[in-house]
């Protein structure tokens, strides 16, 4: 579904990504791990067009998407969450979802749950928030997004992607900053999405939780891909241990 070949990115003299190769096929969940500053977010930014890759190829469903505008890439079906959440702070939480529901992707594919006509969108947005764990009967969905705590903002990020009916969902640390119980409630959601046919790339520092959902993991460090394989294989790798040693223990 997605094939990345020889992808590199330099910021001035700094090499953030160095010759990355990987592929993901339809229906898979791929985990991406690596210590802070290893280039995980940069990789996502390159794939989704938010920054221009310096070299390499990104092929999605047989089409080279390198150099395309972010909105065009979204409309092909690749949706991403932002590690640093980007809500529309001055709007109520549910209104945040009107924008993706209004966009061309949701209109073309029918969006989440096939909805998307004007007027219904408020209801669809509320349903969607409930799906990601906003309490329907409480005031939370109506609160200004700027006043919501991290846990809800992460879910709002996820909800924005779901509204777009993604083929490939890329989550940039959606578990970080969440409590154990919050994560526990999100894991089934991810699994459910995957079962319904969404391919998922998950960047995570919370390895234990990641390994519950991801069958295959790729590790990067200082912009280099170290290894790719089953979670146990990856964690047994010397270089991975070394990269994580001293930094946060990963779990």
């Amino acid at each position: 579904m997605l094939t990345v070949r020889n992808l590199s990115k330099n910021f001035g003299g700094v090499t953030a990504l160095n010759d990355i190769n990987f592929a993901i096929s339809k229906g898979e969940i791929l985990g991406v791990i690596g210590p802070n500053g290893s280039g995980k977010t940069t990789l996502i930014n390159c794939i989704t067009g938010f920054i221009k890759a310096s070299a390499g190829e990104i092929v999605f469903n047989g089409r080279n998407i390198k150099g395309m505008q972010p909105h065009n890439i979204v409309n092909l079906g690749i949706c991403r969450t932002f590690q640093i959440m980007r809500p529309y702070s001055s709007m109520p939480a549910y209104k945040n979802l009107i924008i993706p529901l209004y966009g061309p992707r949701a209109r073309k594919t029918g969006g989440w749950r096939g909805g998307g006509r004007h007027g219904d969108r408020n209801i669809i947005a509320l349903d969607l928030l409930e799906e990601v764990g906003f309490e329907r009967e409480s005031k939370v969905p109506y609160k200004l997004a700027g006043t919501l705590p991290t846990g809800y903002l992460k879910r709002l990020e996820l909800a924005r992607c779901l509204a777009l009916n993604p083929d490939l969902l890329i989550c940039d640390e959606v578990f970080s900053g969440l409590s154990m119980s919050e994560i526990a409630s999100m894991v089934p959601l991810i699994e459910k999405l995957n079962k319904s046919g969404v391919t998922i790339i998950m960047i995570e520092h919370r390895l234990k939780e990641l390994f519950k959902v991801a069958k295959r993991v790729m590790a990067i460090s200082y912009g280099d891909k170290i290894i790719e394989g089953l979670p146990a294989e990856v964690m047994a790798n010397e270089k991975v241990k070394e990269a994580y040693l001293g930094a946060d223990e990963g779990v």
Partner: peptide
């Protein structure tokens, strides 16, 4: 209004 609040999010919504 979303563009004023957070233009990157609007782009990430395919607009």
């Amino acid at each position: 209004k979303g563009i004023k609040d957070n233009d990157q999010s609007v782009r990430a919504s395919g607009i």
